[in-house]
């Protein structure tokens, strides 16, 4: 998309592409719909990924940005689909403890909050 000045100075524009995504060119790229539920201890993110099996799902965490890429094979006349979406994890989420579960074409991401940022009640003792 941004193939302006930078492309001209770069003798090989191919290196700008992510090498692991050769299929993206002929797949139909779709942003999946999500629901976000927020609780005191964790966030739950549900992502609709119909037609995606566990081996077609890739979750990549780089610093606080979570990138979801999921591939759905072509079927009949339907083109292959690549579901793609990025999430900036809120600071209060403990990124290292993010977990994911894929069931019936829906991905559930569980993002636990850091213990120090969870609301808690302080017990008052006398004496």
């Amino acid at each position: 998309m941004h193939e302006s000045a930078s492309t001209q100075t770069n003798p090989s524009p191919r290196v700008q592409r992510a090498p692991q995504q050769p299929k993206t060119a002929d797949a139909y790229v779709v942003t999946p719909a999500i629901d976000v539920y927020e609780g005191a201890e964790e966030l739950r993110v549900f992502v609709d990924l119909p037609g995606v099996a566990a081996d077609g799902l890739d979750l990549d965490l780089d610093k606080e940005v979570l990138t979801l890429t999921a591939n759905r094979a072509a079927r009949g006349r339907d083109r292959a689909v690549t579901y793609k979406r990025r999430f900036a994890l809120p600071r209060e989420v403990a990124a290292e403890n993010v977990s994911a579960k894929l069931e019936d074409g829906v991905l559930l991401l569980t993002l636990p909050k850091r213990a120090a940022l969870r609301p808690r009640s302080i017990k008052v003792t006398s004496g």
Binding site: A33, I34, D35, V36, Y37, E38, G39
Partner: peptide, 10 residues
Amino acid sequence: GFKLSRAERG
């Protein structure tokens, strides 16, 4: 105990 803070799937 959870609040729906973003609803696209419905």
